[in-house]
């Protein structure tokens, strides 16, 4: 048992040394910038495994990565059911509705300076509030199923996207607007051909923030009541049954879903705003 611990610590130190050497010698090459974080991640996982096995920590407190992987492989159907319930039905539908509503409202208030001056401070204020707190209220109104989770997500993503979109619609300068005016462009032509494209970098900034918020809203809302499936439900019941490997499997799914969701939005951003300097610089 002690062998595990010593092996893990030695491996961690060796990996750190290798990373330091790589960073010194090849820090500017592309392959090193993938290898170094990967090696660091693997060494952390091994250290975790070694500590749990070596110090004989009970899986009730902290399961080893290998146990989590076993549980992950064994409970595929449960994980898939929870994924569909929480991520696809709750988070994704709420995300789409909330973001669409925010964009439409942003375009509407952009036409009226009065509304802009009135709604923006309120929107900024609300964006800083602990909005998750409305989860119990919305669960009461919309019932236990995914509709209430989607409602929580709608409210959570609405304000960050709104604030960013309004800033984006104001991003064109006077010169560009004057150019459209000399073309005798109508309001709608100016909106679709100039201001919406110019707003895209700002919009995607908000959309990326909203991906994490959507998952948080959907999972936290399940703590206030849910049908007998869903990630939040599974996490709270599995903790009650001391089935910690299953809990960590759910966390893995949530982490993968979160990164995948974010990555997908970032990919769409790359396709839509290919013209923006921040995207061109990377290519």
């Amino acid at each position: 048992m002690m062998g595990w611990l010593i092996f893990a610590v030695v491996f961690w130190i060796a990996a750190w040394g290798a990373n330091a050497w790589l960073a010194q010698r090849h820090g500017h090459q592309k392959w090193a910038q993938f290898t170094i974080p990967a090696l660091f991640g693997i060494s952390i996982l091994l250290l975790w495994e070694g500590l749990v096995l070596g110090l004989e920590i009970s899986p009730v407190i902290l399961p080893a990565p290998s146990q989590i992987a076993q549980s992950f492989a064994a409970s595929g159907p449960i994980l898939r059911e929870d994924f569909v319930q929480t991520i696809l039905k709750g988070a994704l539908s709420g995300y789409l509705m909330g973001c669409a509503a925010a964009v439409v409202v942003a375009v509407l208030i952009d036409r009226s300076p009065f509304l802009q001056r009135g709604l923006l401070p309120v929107g900024n204020f609300v964006a800083a509030l602990p909005i998750v707190g409305i989860a119990p209220i919305l669960v009461m109104w919309f019932g236990f199923d995914w509709q209430s989770k989607a409602a929580v997500v709608v409210v959570m993503v609405f304000f960050p996207v709104l604030v960013n979109m309004v800033a984006g619609l104001a991003a064109t300068d006077q010169l560009q607007r004057d150019l459209m005016a000399t073309y005798s462009a109508s309001y709608w032509q100016g909106l679709f051909k100039m201001r919406l494209p110019a707003a895209m970098p700002f919009l995607f900034n908000g959309l990326k923030i909203a991906t994490t918020l959507a998952l948080i809203g959907a999972i936290v809302a399940e703590f206030f009541g849910s049908p007998t499936r869903g990630m939040g439900f599974r996490i709270s019941t599995a903790v009650g049954q001391l089935d910690l490997p299953l809990v960590w499997s759910e966390i893995t799914v949530a982490a993968l879903a979160g990164s995948g969701f974010y990555g997908a939005v970032a990919l769409i951003e790359k396709l839509v705003t290919f013209w923006h300097p921040s995207q061109r610089a990377r290519a």
Binding site: A23, I36, G41, T212, I216, I219, A255, G258, S259
Partner: peptide, 19 residues
Amino acid sequence: DLSVMPWAIASQTVPILAI
């Protein structure tokens, strides 16, 4: 920098609050 920062940024996309 090279080993920790990518993980620190990636961890932002994980719904930590939910757990």
